[in-house]
């Protein structure tokens, strides 16, 4: 932990010196993005199933989606040990990326579970 904090401090200093040109390992950034994408897709599917079983219709289901995505973002931040800038180049990567594609699979599984449980 202390090592990461040290290196992030060093990184900040060096980027200040080189006129704010960010330098980072693009391969590892891409692998981190893939990890986040997997987490978000899986959890939006699970959230859709839960909303369907609970029998939500209309706005309450979307509120549940926002809630689950907020919990997921908090979990991802906790997973990175609260030092976002040593794993990602900006906050949007953690908080917003994969939000709308997750919404699509959420709605799909929401209607699917609702149909199975409440209609058939």
């Amino acid at each position: 932990m202390a090592g990461h904090n040290d290196s992030s401090a060093v990184e900040k200093k060096s980027s200040d010196l080189s006129n704010d040109i960010p330098t980072f390992n693009a391969e590892n950034l891409q692998s981190n993005m893939k990890t986040i994408y997997y987490s978000r897709t899986f959890l939006s599917i699970i959230g859709g199933v839960i909303a369907g079983i609970l029998g939500f219709t209309g706005l309450t289901g979307f509120i549940l989606y926002f809630l689950i995505m907020a919990i997921t973002s908090a979990g991802l931040i906790a997973k990175s040990g609260f030092s976002i800038h040593s794993y990602f180049d900006s906050w949007n990567r953690v908080v917003l990326d994969g939000f709308f594609s997750g919404l699509m699979s959420f709605v799909l599984f929401w209607t699917f579970a609702y149909d199975i449980v409440h209609i058939f």
Partner: peptide, 11 residues
């Protein structure tokens, strides 16, 4: 899905 990898070049 796996651990995060550090993107800092001097880590």
């Amino acid at each position: 899905p796996g651990k995060f990898l550090s993107i800092l070049p001097d880590s």
